[in-house]
């Protein structure tokens, strides 16, 4: 048992050391943490009351009091941005966690046990993968519109976020379970769950990590997509809601660049940093893509 744990720790440590030596991974991570930490620190100085309607003179371009100006409802754009980034990241974390865990569980069960169970689960996975997820999410979000909070928003998005991880893990498990060490464990009398947790899981940590980042990325963008359609959380600010408000007040046509460009640029930045992070992770998992 103790050996096993040391092995897991060693493998994680090994993973980390590979990761810290991967330039793409580190660049992505630093970029991401930079904006996340900046948003958290910023929200200390710019409390929520800064984006209550009528807190400032409406429609102001950037000035010393409001570094990123104000919108037509008199809300500080920088304060909205700080809280918006936090909430968007929160949605990303919740969705990625749920998606990865649920996806992994279904993938392992489906792949390891096989048979009728596998066939049924595979069909469900295929259905979730083939139905356009945005359409599905719009329908659900429209149904419970108005009472949406950041957490509910995250739950809605995670409805479709588990399918891709499940498919990947299942495929990996299908090949892993034919290896000798799995047969060995079976012969030594280990149960199915035990084999999954003790033998298969350690091999899949890195896969799950990649899935996590991928789901995170997709969740942030999906939130923006749904919110721009007016289905987002009304009481709280997210990056998508910021774009929604800017659009519904025709900020682009009116030349209020500070209002619409801030969330768009941050969204692009977030996407880029997570994408680089994802590329780096890919190299770690798959040594063939590693730079020589």
């Amino acid at each position: 048992m103790a050996k096993k744990i040391t092995y897991i720790i060693a493998s994680i440590r090994g993973g980390i050391s590979v990761a810290t030596h991967n330039r793409k991974f580190m660049a992505g991570l630093v970029m991401f943490l930079l904006v996340a930490i900046a948003a958290i620190i910023g929200s200390y100085f710019l409390p929520k009351s800064y984006y209550r309607t009528g807190s400032f003179k409406p429609g102001q371009p950037p000035n010393p009091e409001n570094p990123l100006g104000t919108d037509t409802l008199g809300r500080d754009v920088l304060a909205q941005l700080c809280w918006g980034i936090q909430n968007s990241i929160r949605i990303g974390v919740i969705v990625a966690t749920i998606g990865t865990l649920v996806g992994a569980a279904i993938g392992f069960i489906s792949g390891y046990y096989g048979g009728v169970l596998d066939r049924v689960l595979s069909i469900i996975i295929d259905v979730f993968l083939s139905v356009p997820s945005l359409l599905f999410l719009i329908l659900i979000a429209a149904l419970i519109r108005g009472t949406v909070t950041v957490e509910i928003m995250a739950l809605i998005i995670s409805i479709t976020s588990w399918a891709w991880p499940a498919r990947q893990i299942r495929a990996q498990v299908l090949s892993l379970k034919e290896r000798d060490f799995v047969y060995m464990s079976k012969l030594s009398g280990m149960g199915g769950i035990e084999i999954i947790v003790r033998e298969l899981m350690p091999h899949m940590f890195q896969w799950m990590g990649a899935n996590f980042i991928n789901a995170f990325l997709v969740a942030v963008l999906t939130e923006a997509g749904l919110s721009i359609l007016g289905l987002g959380p009304q009481r709280e600010m997210t990056l998508g809601m910021m774009i929604y408000w800017a659009l519904s007040y025709a900020a682009i046509f009116r030349g209020m660049w500070w209002w619409w460009s801030s969330p768009v640029l941050v969204l692009i930045y977030l996407f880029f940093s997570l994408y680089v992070l994802h590329l780096g992770f890919d190299e770690i998992i798959n040594p063939r893509t590693r730079e020589k």
């Binding site: 309607t53 009528g54 409802l73 009304q234 519904s248």
Partner: peptide
């Protein structure tokens, strides 16, 4: 209704 949505934001805050 865009008008109602805008008014609701302001009044809810008040």
């Amino acid at each position: 209704n865009a008008e109602e949505m805008k008014v609701a934001q302001v009044v809810a805050d008040q």
